[in-house]
Simulated scan of single mutants.
Amino acid sequence: MLSLLARLRPAWLRHTPTCQLCRAPGNDLAICAGCEAELPWLSGHCIVCALPLPTHGLPCGECLKRPPPFTRVEAPWRYGFPVDSLITRFKHQGRWPLGRLLGELLARHLEHAFHEGLPRPDALLPVPLSAPRLRQRGFNQAQMLARWLGNELCLPVQDGWLQRIEDGPSQQGLDAAARRRNLRRAFALPSRVEVKGLHLALVDDVLTTGTTAHVLARLLKRAGATRVDVYCLARTPRPGDS
C-alpha cells in the first residue's frame, strides 16, 4: 500500500538524490548513471591481492612467490581519478556524504561477489587508527565504512577487536620496507577477543602495498581465524603502471 502511494505522489514530492559528482539527478544513489560509468572500475586484477593486471583470473607474481595471509581482496576500483579525489575529500576533509556514497557502491559490489560465490564473513573488522591520529582527524574512515557496509549487508561489525597500540609515521609516502618497519608492533588483539574458527573481513579505504593487511591478517590467523579477506574501496597499481 505504501509503495503504491509513493508511486502516486506528484513528482515534486518525490526525493531524487543529486549526483555528488556533477549535481545532476541521480538514480537510487547519489550518483548519476554517467558518472558511475566513468569511475575507474577495476577490471583485470590479481585474484588474491587485486593488484591491477592486464589479465583476468590469475594471481600476480608476488602472490605466487609469497602467498599473503589474507585469502582475497575485494575492491571495486583502481585508485585513480575521480575515486582518489573522492576518498581524499572524505578522509581528510570530512566529506562524509562522499564516503557514504562510496560505501554504498562497495556494498553493491560485495553483494554481487557474494552471489557469485564469495563466502560471507562472520564479521567486519575496520582497520584501527591510533588514539592520537583519531583525535587529530576526529573519525576513523575505515570504521565508518565498516558500519555502512554492515548496515547494507546485514553483517556484524566488531569495532574493538583490533587495536592500534603504537603510532608511527603516516603510511602515505613510505615504500614497502618502511611500511613493514612502521607496523612491526603496531597492532594487538585483546585477550578477551576470541576469533578461533571465524571468517573475518578487514575494512579499509585503500590498499597500497598491502602491508597493513598482511600484518593484521597474520595477527588474526595466528589467533585462530580460519580465513581473512580484505574489503576496500580502491587498489593502487604498481608504481609506473598507467
Rank of each mutant, 00 (worst) to 15 (best):
M1F: 10
M1S: 13
L2G: 10
L4S: 12
A6T: 08
A11F: 09
P17L: 05
L21K: 04
C22I: 09
P25I: 04
A30W: 09
G34Y: 06
S43A: 15
G44V: 01
C46G: 02
A50P: 02
H56K: 13
L58N: 07
E62P: 05
C63N: 09
F70A: 07
F70H: 06
V73K: 01
E74L: 15
E74A: 13
R78P: 03
T88L: 11
H92V: 03
H92E: 13
G94F: 02
R95L: 07
R95E: 14
W96D: 14
L98F: 11
L101R: 08
G103S: 07
R108G: 09
H109L: 01
H112G: 11
A113C: 13
A113Y: 01
H115A: 14
E116C: 14
L124R: 04
P126D: 00
P128D: 00
L134H: 13
Q136S: 12
Q136M: 11
R137G: 06
A142M: 05
N151A: 15
E152R: 15
G160T: 14
Q163L: 10
E166N: 12
L174E: 09
A178D: 10
R180K: 09
L183K: 10
A188H: 09
V193A: 10
V195T: 04
G197H: 09
L198H: 10
D205T: 03
T208F: 07
T212A: 04
H214S: 04
A217H: 06
L219I: 07
L219M: 12
K221S: 14
R222Q: 15
A225Q: 03
V228L: 10
V228Y: 09
Y231H: 09
Y231F: 15
Y231S: 00
L233V: 08
L233S: 06
L233P: 02
R235M: 00
P239A: 06
G240Y: 02
D241L: 00
